[in-house]
């Protein structure tokens, strides 16, 4: 069960095991065959320290989570989902995308419909991370959790709520409302994101590790106002990342993917028969 996050003082390097506590929690301890159970890898990171989102970080090391199942279990894992990261700038224009405090990473695991009721499954997660304050310490952990197949899916209510809350705070899938929140179109090789809600005061793009390389991310990865223009290194790699819209205290974010526009000899391709709609003019939000 999730204990309240303990506000730990910064530890001397000798007590390195205390810097990040890792645990694995199933949303449900009883799972109906054919159902999907969310597993949460919980990183409790000591105060003032951080771990790294798997983005285009200038330094540090992406946190990795790898699940393994008993042989022949038939379990299948879905994609690993991280919380919305945070931009973290160090002296020397070093930009990283980080997580602090309690970091809940979730992975959906589907139980085969053919699994017999009453079978216990032990799932193991191997994690690697680098935890930094000024100094950095690499860490790894192997944690496991068990659930049992049953007639009805059910679990510990507190854990289920904690995992539901964590998932609700994660970036949503792009298909789940991005188009209602913003427009995205290409101007040549520049991607323009414009929030539809005039109350949005900041748009942030977090480029994923494997996606197109964002140019000049320090200055151009975050807007003041509802429009963000993003330039990428040449190439065909699609744009992958997370887009976040901030208005007041609200942070709404979506996972974002976009193919690159086609180019002919470095020139933008001629307009397609059905061009993407142009964004409305940006709100004069600067003051």
């Amino acid at each position: 069960m999730l204990a309240p996050y303990a506000d730990q003082p910064a530890e001397p390097a000798g007590k390195r095991k205390e810097l990040v506590a890792v645990s694995l929690l199933p949303h449900d301890t009883a799972v109906k065959p054919g159902d999907t159970v969310q597993l949460a890898v919980v990183f409790d990171v000591a105060k003032d320290w951080h771990i790294y989102w798997p983005g285009q970080n200038d330094s540090g090391m992406a946190t990795t989570v790898e699940l393994s199942f008993p042989p022949g279990s038939g379990l299948t894992a879905g994609p690993v989902s991280f919380p919305i990261p945070k931009r973290y700038v160090e002296e020397g224009d070093i930009l990283n995308y980080i997580h602090e405090g309690r970091v809940v990473v979730t992975v959906p695991v589907t139980v085969p419909a053919t699994a017999p009721v009453g079978r216990a499954f032990k799932v193991t997660a191997s994690v690697n991370y680098l935890v930094c304050k000024e100094s950095c310490i690499p860490g790894e952990a192997v944690v496991s959790a068990t659930f049992t197949t049953a007639d009805k899916t059910a679990g510990n209510a507190a854990d289920a709520k904690a995992i539901d809350d964590a998932r609700a705070a994660q970036p949503k899938p792009q298909a789940d409302g991005f188009d209602a929140a913003a427009t995205a179109h290409w101007e040549g090789q520049t991607l323009v994101l414009t929030a539809k809600d005039a109350a949005v005061t900041q748009v942030t793009f977090f480029p994923s590790e494997g996606g197109a390389k964002l140019r000049n991310p320090l200055a151009s990865g975050q807007s003041k106002g509802g429009t963000l223009k993003l330039a990428f290194d040449p190439g065909l790699k699609p744009v992958e990342g997370v887009v976040e819209f901030t208005s007041g205290n609200s942070r709404r974010a979506w996972a974002f993917h976009s193919a690159r526009p086609q180019e002919t000899n470095g020139e933008p391709a001629p307009a397609s028969p059905k061009p993407a709609p142009l964004a409305p003019p940006a709100e004069p939000s600067s003051r």
Binding site: D93, N216, A219, S220, S223, K224, G225, K229
Partner: peptide, 19 residues
């Protein structure tokens, strides 16, 4: 220049270098 560009929205992402 970066600050100015950020204040005058929309910033043109490609027009200035970080360092």
């Amino acid at each position: 220049a970066g600050l100015l560009a950020l204040q005058a929205q929309p910033a043109n992402a490609g027009s200035y270098a970080a360092a």
